[in-house]
Amino acid sequence: MLTAGEQSKTNTWEPRIVAFFCNWCTYTAADLAGVSRLRHAPNARIIRVMCSGRVDPQFILDAFSKGADGVLLGGCHPGDCHYMEGNYKALRRMRLLKRMLKDMGIEEHRFRLEWISASEGERIKTVINEMTEQVRTLGPLGLPKKFEEWDTEMEVLERTVNGKEEAVHA
């Protein structure tokens, strides 16, 4: 894996992963990974929410559209949710979202839902490392850039159409 130092030298791209972690299990597990000094890839940035059930699929789409190359959602194991069943709600939503992402041409491995309990610091390390490598293999998603290109295309198209219309009227 290239470190960021090497990255700046070679100016290569590094995967960017946005991680939504629930306060009670997965965020606590990340704390445990920290306390246990379980070194892992620096590519994930965590957003803490109270429950994985709080995560609106829009958050994930928004993250992709703003430039994330991967999104990770972490919650308590089934049956262990601090709020009884929020993680089941998350699971149902994310199953649907996965299908949508596929239709949008966003590769499967760019989005991951993981159950990580408060005691599984080791799992944080494994999941983040694994996902970083998977996303690295997939390469950048680059949606903001694509949006720009699409916008330009639309403008060009509009101009072309308008130009033709003007020609007809003339």
Binding site: I47, F59, D62, A63, K66, A68, P140, G142, K145, K146
Partner: peptide, 20 residues
């Protein structure tokens, strides 16, 4: 929602634009 969206935005705002 606004808080979380702004967090997402903040995290990614500096993303270098890359060509794919």
């Amino acid at each position: 929602d606004e808080m979380i969206f702004s967090e997402i935005n903040g995290l990614l705002e500096n993303t270098p634009v890359v060509c794919c």
